[in-house]
């Protein structure tokens, strides 16, 4: 019975992937119409030389709003899950409490390198954010570079748990503020579209 199931599985997998293969390997000349439209109109309409940024944050900003919300919900859901995981772990056994205090080896090499590299990464993130309209990059990319800079720095500089908790409180506030800012900018964009 198991073998039959396995054979069926392989056959269906092969057939389905064959179909996907037909789809992926069909070569049709790539359409140029939209490209030409954007090439001629973007600078007049948005003022941004970077077409990808103009599409991502202008023409199709509505998609980007959805994407940001996916990010937001995923972060919220993951944090919720982790919080509950820790809670259930505490309830389960007392001896497992130590599992959550990680003993990591912070050698001085890592400390030195990260403390020099971290600020540079953060500045690079800000640069990407600020100049995304004319060079590659943009808000989201810059933000994620910035975030990885902060994460790297936090690897080194958070020594004990109380500080960590303070940081999470602060991050919670930042999260709320950023979401509000996002919505306010969305509203402003709507208003601009309405009245100007």
């Amino acid at each position: 019975m198991r073998i039959i199931k396995k054979i069926i599985g392989f056959i269906t997998f092969t057939l389905a992937s064959l179909f996907i293969g037909i789809l992926m390997l069909t070569r049709i000349p790539w359409p140029t119409e939209l490209r030409d439209i954007y090439e001629t109109n973007t600078i007049q309409e948005t003022g941004a030389p970077n077409i990808v940024s103009a599409i991502y944050l202008g023409y199709r900003a509505y998609d980007t709003l959805g994407e940001t919300i996916v990010l937001f919900i995923a972060a919220m859901g993951t944090l919720y899950l982790l919080r509950h995981a820790q809670k259930s772990l505490f309830i389960a056994t007392d001896s497992t409490k130590e599992t959550l205090t990680y003993k990591t080896r912070r050698t001085s090499i890592i400390k030195v390198i990260v403390s020099k590299l971290g600020p540079a990464i953060i500045i690079f993130g800000m640069y990407i954010m600020a100049f995304g309209y004319r060079s590659p990059g943009g808000g989201f990319q810059g933000g994620s570079v910035l975030a990885s800079g902060i994460v790297i720095l936090s690897f080194v500089f958070i020594e004990n748990k109380s500080k960590y908790m303070a940081i999470t409180q602060m991050l919670k506030k930042i999260e709320v503020m950023v979401f509000i800012l996002l919505l306010v900018s969305f509203f402003l964009a709507c208003l601009q579209a309405l009245f100007f």
């Binding site: 509505y62 998609d63 959805g66 994407e67 919300i69 996916v70 919900i73 919220m76 859901g77 919720y80």
Partner: peptide
């Protein structure tokens, strides 16, 4: 945009089930 909306609805339902 249909894809993005489907993803949002999907991810909200995964989290709500959790």
């Amino acid at each position: 945009n249909l894809f993005v909306c489907l993803e949002v609805l999907g991810i909200t339902s995964y989290v709500l089930v959790v």
